[in-house]
């Protein structure tokens, strides 16, 4: 058994008839740092809800470290820690009580729980706030509180549903650092996020959900290698009135001092600069127009939309 999580033909139809998951298959390897991406309503939170026993599945199987969710629910629950998207702790309780109570639900005795809680809260810079009511914490602190709570029983699989939403960049980076260390120490992590650079920089494997279906499931490296063209935004040293017509690069002009250049992935950056120099275009600074993963994500989701539209129009023709 090499997987931390294996999902087979997982389906969920809500009481109102909405089909949130249309039979997804997914496998996350032990020790992986896995990105689960998708637009709002793609089915990520439903899938996580089922894995964490918060949502009842309609059909399919969920297996966590060899334990079947239906047959061995307790064992599955002992292995998982969840950091949900929404703050869901009792805001009137002190920080330390929230953590200790969570430990208690896993049957961890208070003295042991206290020791672990102290370690976690110190790691996450919350120890000074331990006696503070949770409602008095800042947004970033609340997120870290939920991470500490999810880790109190030492889960082997940690699921984070948009853990850095609304968190400033400094705290976000410290959270990335903390999660990377946790993963290196052996904890399998599944991450959903809207910050695609976060997924790109941290995750080894990725699955993209769209409208309840897995549209892609592969390694991050493999996915990024599919990117054919990368677009760079260049700030120019001198204004450029007209783009040279004989230039070998595809250039779009934003304004007189900013251009966007498309570079085929078979070409090097040196080629880009040599070509621009040849046409007397001098560059002050450059950056990626969009995150690479973001470009792929949009392409995959759009492709899936087009396929659905094409299937729909075909079926309507047949019906007609």
């Amino acid at each position: 058994m090499t997987h931390a999580l294996k999902i087979t033909n997982l389906k969920k139809t809500y009481d109102n008839g909405f089909q949130a998951l249309k039979g997804i298959d997914l496998e996350v390897k032990k020790g992986d740092f896995f990105a689960l991406l998708g637009a709002n309503g793609a089915g990520k939170s439903t899938a996580i809800g089922i894995i964490c026993s918060l949502v009842n599945k309609t059909d399919g199987d969920v297996n966590v470290f060899g334990y079947d969710l239906e047959a061995d629910r307790e064992a599955v629950q002992e292995h998982i820690g969840l950091v949900p998207q929404e703050f869901n702790f009792n805001i009137w309780e002190p920080v330390i009580e929230i953590i200790l109570n969570q430990a208690g639900y896993y049957g961890i005795e208070r003295p042991v729980a206290r020791k672990r809680a102290e370690e976690l809260l110190k790691h996450l810079n919350l120890w000074d706030k331990r006696d503070e009511q949770a409602q008095n914490l800042s947004g970033g602190m609340k997120r870290r509180l939920m991470i500490a709570r999810a880790l109190i029983h030492n889960p082997k699989l940690l699921i984070l549903d948009e853990p850095t939403a609304g968190v400033d960049i400094e705290i976000r980076r410290s959270m990335w650092d903390f999660l990377s260390k946790l993963n290196q120490a052996g904890t399998t992590i599944i991450l959903t996020t809207h910050y695609l650079e976060e997924a790109e920089s941290m995750c080894n494997n990725i699955a993209i959900l769209n409208k309840g279906e897995v549209v892609e499931s592969t390694s991050m490296k493999e996915l990024l290698s599919r990117l054919q063209v990368e677009t760079f935004v260049l700030d120019l040293k001198e204004p450029l009135d007209i783009i040279p017509s004989d230039c070998e690069l595809t250039i779009h002009q934003r304004d007189t001092s900013t251009i966007e250049v498309e570079l085929d992935k078979t070409r090097s950056l040196n080629y880009l600069f040599e070509t621009l120099s040849k046409h007397n275009i001098r560059v002050m600074s450059m950056r990626n127009k969009t995150n690479r993963l973001e470009e792929l994500f949009i392409k995959l989701v759009e492709k899936s939309k087009e396929e659905n539209t094409s299937i729909k129009s075909t079926s309507s023709e047949v019906t007609a």
Binding site: R73, Q77, P84, N88, F89, I91, N101, Y105, Y106
Partner: peptide, 17 residues
């Protein structure tokens, strides 16, 4: 209140019978 504010989930995700 636990249902409304979501902290009932703390118990639901745990193995507490």
């Amino acid at each position: 209140t636990a249902k409304m504010f979501g902290h009932i989930q703390e118990m639901l995700i745990s193995p507490v019978p």
